[in-house]
Computed example of a mutant assay.
Amino acid sequence: MPARIAEVCAETGQEPPRERPAVVRCILDSLALAYRRTVRRAAELSGPEIEVVHLVGGGARNELLCRLTADACGLPVLAGPVEAAALGNALVQARAAGVLTGGLPELRTVLRSTQEVRRDEPAGASSGTEAALTRAARRAGLDC
């Protein structure tokens, strides 16, 4: 991964990160910016305004990723549950077996009452974030 990052940096005229923490930060910033593009595109395609970003799975454990995502998207991030796929599977099986009979509202209530979800509010995108968005858009031919 560091070699690919260095390659992209060379292609875009940027200084590649040299130390491991800088590589990790580069990856987290890139993920947050990708989430921003995806959230904005989803809003364009679906119509309704997006009010919150749900970040589930292992990435929900990374507080920095969640904060960067909130800032990049300009939206609150709800982080968790970490095992969302497994929990969803278990809830659907419980419904199919007749253990839970209330439909989707009941499944959501069970999930909310059993899983911790952390909320990260946007602190505002920095000028560095905006510069990164401009570079990413130029490179990919996208409107960020």
Rank of each mutant, 00 (worst) to 15 (best):
A32I: 06
R67V: 06
P105D: 08
G80H: 04
L104F: 11
A96E: 13
G98N: 08
D71P: 00
C66N: 09
L31E: 01
T69F: 03
G98T: 10
A42H: 15
L100C: 08
L75G: 00
A84K: 09
A97C: 10
P81D: 14
G57K: 09
G47M: 05
T101E: 14
L100F: 13
A85N: 14
G58Q: 05
D71L: 01
Q93G: 09
A84C: 13
I50K: 05
A97S: 11
V53T: 04
G98F: 07
H54S: 12
A85I: 15
D71E: 06
L68V: 04
L45E: 15
V99W: 12
A43W: 05
V99E: 10
A97L: 14
A94E: 14
S30R: 03
G98V: 09
L55M: 08
E106V: 03
G88H: 12
R41D: 14
L65I: 06
G102P: 02
N89V: 11
A96L: 15
V99A: 09
Y35L: 10
L75Y: 02
L45D: 11
L91V: 12
A60F: 03
R108C: 14
L107N: 00
C26G: 02
A85C: 15
L55P: 01
A84W: 13
R40A: 06
V56G: 07
L64P: 05
P105M: 06
C66H: 04
S30H: 06
S30G: 15
L100M: 11
G59S: 07
S46I: 05
G74I: 02
T101A: 13
E49M: 04
E83D: 15
P48Q: 00
R67Q: 15
H54M: 10
V53S: 01
D29M: 07
E44R: 14
V56N: 08
G58C: 02
L33I: 10
L55R: 02
L33D: 11
S30L: 07
A60W: 03
G59D: 03
S46D: 11
